[in-house]
């Protein structure tokens, strides 16, 4: 699957030095901003934080997927971070988070190909084998290679 155009060099953090949920989110949003996915950083940040308030995006198994749909997103984007220290995310299973995918979706994006990729990624995260491979990723090119297999 073609993950390029969705996941940029600037939004991959292996590793990310942060030990607090909000710091992780802000660092990753900066990455998306640098990659040119955001037109209004604050609006997207608000969308992500609002989403977190309705229920944690820590889906368990050490993975979190903060995400937001906002007019502050100019093109769909993905950010990835492997955290240097396991970080509390109020996850469904209570476990701290080691890997984070951040998803940015523009307000009007129905039927978009990028959406289909993000959906495929979400489905794939339920697969324990895929998660193990994800946790073992050492650098950006390994990550890209893994995501190409989806």
């Amino acid at each position: 699957m073609n993950i390029q155009g969705l996941l940029h060099e600037q939004s991959i953090f292996i590793p990310l030095q942060a030990n607090e949920k909000n710091a992780v989110i802000e660092a990753m949003i900066d990455g998306l901003q640098a990659a040119g996915c955001l037109s209004d950083k604050q609006a997207y940040l608000d969308a992500v934080l609002t989403r977190e308030q309705t229920g944690s995006t820590g889906i368990g198994f050490g993975v979190a997927i903060p995400h937001g749909k906002s007019s502050g997103v100019s093109q769909a984007g993905l950010a990835f971070a492997k955290l240097s220290e396991p970080t509390d995310w109020q996850s469904l299973d209570g476990e701290p988070v080691k890997a984070v995918f951040m998803i940015a979706v523009p307000e009007e994006a129905a039927g978009n190909d990028h959406l289909k990729i993000l959906i495929a990624l979400s489905r794939k995260l339920i697969d324990s084998e895929f998660r193990e491979q994800l946790m073992a990723v050492q650098n950006a090119s390994q990550l890209t290679a893994l995501l190409e297999t989806i």
């Binding site: 989403r51 309705t54 995006t57 889906i59 997927i65 995400h67 937001g68 749909k69 998803i103 979706v105 959406l115 993000l118 959906i119 979400s122 489905r123 995260l125 339920i126 697969d127």
Partner: peptide, 14 residues
């Protein structure tokens, strides 16, 4: 789910 990219599909897959 409200955003419709993540939880909807993860729940389905699970």
């Amino acid at each position: 789910c409200p955003t419709g990219v993540a939880h909807t599909y993860m729940a389905a897959e699970s």
